[in-house]
């Protein structure tokens, strides 16, 4: 994992009409906590949003102005930029239930279906 990279989800067929998710993960350098957060996020996405997500990683240490722009205070912060509205989840995302609640994965999926 390197900073500011966009991680494309593995594409699966039949996702044309499904909502696309853009998630930004703000971290400060490659700390153990950042790494944990990223792997937790990846796991959750693969499980619940296969093929319908992009993860953008922003290292605020190198791009502090982005932290200012997006009102990031706590790290790691996960921001759901799409679908709107913006939702935020902070922490290393180890509490999967809370991540799902915070990102409104289940409710969003329900409304789509």
């Amino acid at each position: 994992m390197s900073a500011d990279q966009i991680v494309k989800g593995t594409t699966t067929a039949g996702g044309a009409e499904a909502v696309h998710w853009l998630l930004t993960l703000y971290v400060a350098g490659q700390t153990p906590r950042s790494v944990t957060a990223f792997s937790n996020l990846k796991q959750i996405c693969e499980e619940h949003l296969p093929g319908r997500y992009d993860i953008e990683i922003v290292d605020v240490v190198t791009k502090p102005e982005l932290a200012t722009r997006d009102q990031v205070v706590a790290l790691p912060t996960l921001v759901r930029k799409l679908p709107e509205p913006v939702r935020k989840v902070i922490g290393d995302l180890s509490n999967k239930e809370k991540v799902l609640v915070g990102l409104e994965v289940r409710t969003m999926e329900r409304t789509v279906k």
Binding site: Y26, A28, R33, T36, A37, N40, V60, V61, P64, A67, T68, Q71, V72, V73, A74, L75, P76, T77, P85, V86, R87, K88, V89, I90, G91, D92, L93, S94, N95, K96, K98, V99, V101, G102, L103
Partner: peptide, 22 residues
């Protein structure tokens, strides 16, 4: 510096490094 608590979920350990960086 603004954070709306209603649009934030805390899921796991975190720190305020973002504030420090800013």
């Amino acid at each position: 510096v603004h954070i709306d608590r209603t649009e934030i979920e805390e899921a796991g350990d975190y720190d305020l490094e973002g504030l420090f960086v800013r």
